[in-house]
């Protein structure tokens, strides 16, 4: 019984993300499955400007619905993905793109993994360098040598 419930839950969890992409009304979809797939892939790269953290394919906001329809109209007109993205960027700025381009405003964003790796290697290198074995201690002076001899003699004696 418990197992069956768990299996059902697992199935529900696996199906959930599929449902999230199927929000759009079937009547919105293009008849040509190839073009529809292209529209969906493009829509997933475009931000819904109302919800801001969802793509226009996932969002149920009115504006997202309008933009989905707009993307499909432009695809039917034979425009390339690049042209459609340029059309939207001209209106909403690069914010509309979920994959922002590499430019002066985003180089830190794109470069942050490299920065993190370099910083990490720097810390490791710094620690390794600092851990060089210490230089040989200064030679013992006369008093110390005498004491050492005494101690060794004591140890040997016990």
């Amino acid at each position: 019984m418990k197992r069956a419930v768990l299996k059902l839950l697992l199935a529900a969890m696996l199906l959930a993300p599929v449902a999230a992409h199927a929000i759009s009304d079937p009547s919105e979809m293009l008849a040509n499955p190839k073009l529809e797939a292209r529209a969906e892939a493009l829509g997933r790269r475009l931000r819904c400007l109302v919800c801001q953290n969802e793509s226009i394919e996932e969002s149920s906001a009115g504006l997202a619905q309008d933009l989905r329809a707009l993307v499909r109209r432009h695809i039917m007109r034979g425009e390339s993905d690049k042209q459609i993205i340029a059309f939207l960027v001209a209106r909403y700025g690069n914010f509309v793109r979920l994959d922002p381009p590499f430019d002066p405003a985003t180089w830190l964003l794109w470069g942050s993994p490299v920065v993190a790796i370099v910083a990490g290697l720097g810390v490791v290198a710094f620690r390794v360098v600092r851990r060089v074995p210490p230089a040989a201690p200064a030679p013992l002076d006369q008093a110390e040598r005498d004491r050492l001899a005494r101690l060794l003699a004591d140890n040997a004696g016990s």
């Binding site: 009115g62 309008d66 209106r91």
Partner: peptide, 10 residues
């Protein structure tokens, strides 16, 4: 809402 898209209305 089509003209508003040209204005970049969110």
């Amino acid at each position: 809402g089509r003209a508003s898209i040209d204005w970049g209305l969110t």
